[in-house]
Amino acid sequence: MESLTKNRQSLDTLRAMIERAYGVDQVPEGDTFASELSYGLFNAVYRICLRDGAEVVLKIAPPAGVPVLTREHQMMRNEIAAMALIERESTVPIPRVDFVDLSAELCDADFFFMEYVDALCFGIEAEAGDLPDDVVVAGHEHLGALNKDLNQIVGPHFGPLAGPGFATWREAATAMFGDVLADGKNADVDLGWDYDVVEGLFAAHAAVLDLVLVPRLVEVDLWAKNSMMREGRIVAIIDHERAMFGDPLMEAGLTGLDLPSFPDPAPFARGFGLTDLTPAERTRRHLYTLWLAVTMLVETTYRGQGPEQYRWACEQLDIAMALLGRSR
């Protein structure tokens, strides 16, 4: 997928990155050693074949001068920190990180190399209809169970992993939602709603966020497309860049509870261990749907996406506003 944030590099630069990470003896010959994995929307990602035939993945953060959302600044560093935390405190399978470079010497951004997981992208295969229905259902249940395991990791504060930290989830969520609204205003994004109305609706229901007392690791972006499957089982979770300490009810696998255009959340919820929601929990989930809808809408400008994606995001925001009692 195309995005203004993708920081593609020349083959010569890729060779220099490989040499720094793995040594000169692993720099491949020829010009066919790199293939772009293009379905992401933020980083440039390459599948690299080293000289000895081993395969690895290279992720490169956006160029220094490209506008990104407030929470996306240094987001690759957040992903690296999340992966280290997950490796240290859980048994959830993730790729091994081989090398990290934060110097900006070889290109104008952070980059890192990690293990190549020889498996299929669960979400892509499911969306294409290439998996049996029972495998898809089992995959979503497994994804929910793995997500629940990740949520058992407890952080020192609410909010971004590296801070700023907040003492309460309401403070953290309100601040981060406010950042997304500010990003939209700065880019003159038309939400189809007055910004003050959207912000006021969030604030009017925010008291339910005070019921979240433990800051748990939340992936936020753990869609099926961010998991790898082999022989019907998920063998790796990828793309941890948006992880934070917050409320597990905001996990992506539950989005279909509110937005019909997203996958049926029932299998994920079973694996996640979620049954009926209390009224307060349902309101929290609605707030996270509102937050997601605004983010998706603002992203259409920052990513350079077209009018079709913009119209779809506007529809999701209308649904989210109605869930919280504000219809047109």
Results as ranks from 00 to 15, higher is better:
residue 2 E to G: 08
residue 15 R to V: 00
residue 16 A to T: 00
residue 20 R to Q: 15
residue 23 G to I: 14
residue 26 Q to V: 11
residue 26 Q to M: 15
residue 28 P to Q: 10
residue 30 G to S: 09
residue 32 T to W: 10
residue 32 T to K: 08
residue 33 F to L: 13
residue 36 E to Q: 13
residue 37 L to H: 03
residue 37 L to G: 04
residue 40 G to Q: 04
residue 44 A to Q: 01
residue 45 V to I: 12
residue 46 Y to V: 02
residue 51 R to T: 07
residue 52 D to G: 06
residue 53 G to V: 13
residue 54 A to V: 11
residue 54 A to H: 10
residue 56 V to D: 02
residue 57 V to G: 07
residue 60 I to S: 01
residue 61 A to D: 12
residue 63 P to L: 06
residue 65 G to I: 03
residue 69 L to W: 01
residue 69 L to D: 00
residue 75 M to K: 00
residue 75 M to Y: 10
residue 78 N to H: 09
residue 80 I to H: 01
residue 81 A to D: 12
residue 85 L to A: 03
residue 86 I to R: 08
residue 86 I to D: 09
residue 88 R to P: 05
residue 88 R to T: 12
residue 89 E to N: 07
residue 90 S to T: 15
residue 91 T to W: 06
residue 93 P to R: 07
residue 95 P to G: 05
residue 99 F to L: 09
residue 102 L to D: 14
residue 102 L to I: 02
residue 103 S to L: 07
residue 105 E to D: 15
residue 107 C to Q: 00
residue 108 D to N: 07
residue 122 F to Y: 15
residue 127 E to T: 04
residue 130 D to Q: 11
residue 131 L to I: 04
residue 133 D to V: 08
residue 136 V to W: 00
residue 137 V to D: 03
residue 140 H to I: 02
residue 142 H to E: 15
residue 143 L to S: 02
residue 146 L to F: 11
residue 146 L to K: 03
residue 150 L to D: 05
residue 151 N to H: 09
residue 152 Q to V: 03
residue 159 G to A: 06
residue 159 G to S: 08
residue 161 L to N: 03
residue 163 G to I: 06
residue 163 G to R: 08
residue 165 G to M: 11
residue 170 R to W: 13
residue 172 A to N: 05
residue 173 A to P: 01
residue 176 M to T: 08
residue 178 G to H: 10
residue 185 K to F: 12
residue 186 N to T: 06
residue 194 D to R: 10
residue 194 D to W: 09
residue 197 V to K: 09
residue 201 L to M: 12
residue 209 L to A: 06
residue 211 L to T: 06
residue 211 L to D: 15
residue 212 V to T: 12
residue 215 P to H: 05
residue 216 R to Y: 07
residue 218 V to D: 11
residue 220 V to N: 10
residue 225 K to A: 14
residue 231 E to W: 07
residue 233 R to W: 02
residue 234 I to G: 00
residue 234 I to T: 03
residue 235 V to M: 11
residue 236 A to S: 15
residue 236 A to R: 04
residue 237 I to M: 14
residue 240 H to N: 14
residue 240 H to I: 01
residue 241 E to V: 01
residue 243 A to Y: 03
residue 243 A to M: 10
residue 252 A to Q: 13
residue 253 G to F: 01
residue 254 L to I: 09
residue 255 T to P: 00
residue 256 G to Y: 08
residue 261 S to M: 13
residue 261 S to G: 09
residue 264 D to F: 08
residue 268 F to S: 01
residue 270 R to S: 11
residue 271 G to K: 02
residue 275 T to I: 06
residue 275 T to N: 14
residue 276 D to H: 12
residue 283 T to W: 02
residue 284 R to N: 06
residue 284 R to Y: 08
residue 286 H to E: 15
residue 286 H to R: 14
residue 286 H to N: 13
residue 290 L to M: 12
residue 292 L to I: 12
residue 293 A to D: 09
residue 294 V to D: 02
residue 299 E to N: 08
residue 303 R to E: 02
residue 308 E to Y: 10
residue 313 A to D: 11
residue 315 E to K: 06
residue 320 A to V: 04
residue 321 M to H: 09
residue 325 G to Q: 10
